[in-house]
């Protein structure tokens, strides 16, 4: 697919050298540039997983659209869920610049040949979960995504810039929702604490396996696709979140969490990586439901895309004959 044709005067080694020099100079790779097959494959995998996460990520919060406690909260939640769809579209668009096909990526998601973030396989049990997702899950996403705005692949970096601008709204609306609940009744405060208890550890898992068990990380960092290691980003998230939890008045469910005065970083307890592996490989609380709903969206709405195609074809023919 990426083999240069013979009429090019440079040979593959020279292309590779040029690619390496571009990366070394921290310049961006653009779609028509020569790139190693591994770079292309890694990007397609990462961008597709990211896109799938945005699309599947509409579901846990979407479940509360018809049960929002006020019109204000409903309007906010609608806008947020719509944003998630938009983020998925920006990312599929970036994946297509690498030669991937959007419909094919969706099929791979539905057939479970490609993954999405483990976090979206947990259920949203109360409206406090909507707030906690905005605060913790979108907060973790921001930690992950801000450095990706400088990713070496131009279209990915540009999509991330657009996404990051919108994530800030997501996080702030969540935190504001939680502040509102914390000013409410004891039962409402208990709901917030319960949601924090359930979402804290899965949020830490969002950064992926620890560095010594993350086989793709080193190469991705060498290629400038990733800019920081999983553990670095996780630490940054914990340090950011602890004072926010204090302000809110909730307890993060980790007895080992404490500030290390020597490093200035918070130390935290062991993450249950068995749970992570179980959930990412299909055995989480809501995996089957998420995929079933995505499949239904594709299949049940196929008639709409077919009708639009038929309409467009008819009108094009009419225009042509006029």
């Amino acid at each position: 697919m990426s083999t240069p044709t013979v009429e090019h005067s440079l040979d593959e080694a020279a292309f590779h050298e040029h690619f390496d020099a571009t990366i070394a100079a921290d310049r961006r790779i653009e779609p028509r540039d020569w790139m190693p097959e591994g770079y292309r494959r890694t990007l397609i995998r990462q961008i597709a997983q990211h896109a799938h996460s945005e699309i599947i990520g509409m579901q846990p919060e979407g479940d509360w659209l018809l049960a929002a406690p006020s019109l204000r909260r409903k309007a906010i939640l609608l806008a947020k869920v719509q944003d998630e769809a938009g983020h998925g579209m920006y990312l599929y668009s970036a994946a297509e610049t690498l030669g991937a096909d959007r419909a094919d990526l969706t099929d791979k998601l539905i057939e479970r040949k490609q993954k999405y973030s483990s976090i979206f396989n947990y259920a949203t049990l109360t409206y406090a979960d909507v707030g906690v997702i905005g605060w913790l899950v979108d907060g973790a996403a921001i930690c992950n995504q801000v450095p990706l705005c400088r990713s070496s692949y131009g279209p990915y970096a540009r999509a991330m810039i657009r996404i990051c601008k919108e994530e800030s709204f997501h996080q702030r609306q969540g935190y504001e929702l939680l502040m509102t609940m914390m000013r409410g009744t004891p039962a409402q405060r208990a709901m917030v604490q319960d949601a924090v208890d359930r979402w804290w550890w899965p949020s830490l898992m969002m950064f992926g396996p620890p560095d010594d068990d993350s086989p793709n990380s080193a190469q991705s960092m060498a290629w400038g696709i990733k800019r920081h290691s999983n553990d670095e980003l996780r630490q940054r998230f914990v340090d950011m979140t602890v004072p926010q939890a204090e302000f809110l008045g909730v307890t993060l469910p980790d007895p080992e969490l404490r500030l290390d005065p020597e490093t200035g970083h918070h130390r935290f307890g062991a993450i249950d990586w068995d749970e992570f592996k179980r959930v990412i490989s299909g055995d989480g609380p809501a995996n089957a439901e998420r995929i079933a709903r995505r499949r239904a969206a594709r299949d049940d709405n196929a008639w709409v895309t077919e009708a639009a195609t038929a309409y467009a074809t008819k009108h094009a023919a009419r225009k042509h004959s006029a």
């Binding site: 090019h8 571009t22 028509r32 020569w34 668009s93 610049t97 131009g154 279209p155």
Partner: peptide
Amino acid sequence: EGGHGAVPTGPEVPV
């Protein structure tokens, strides 16, 4: 190509 219009892309050779 997808998402990219006529963005000038430097001296690299296209795939």
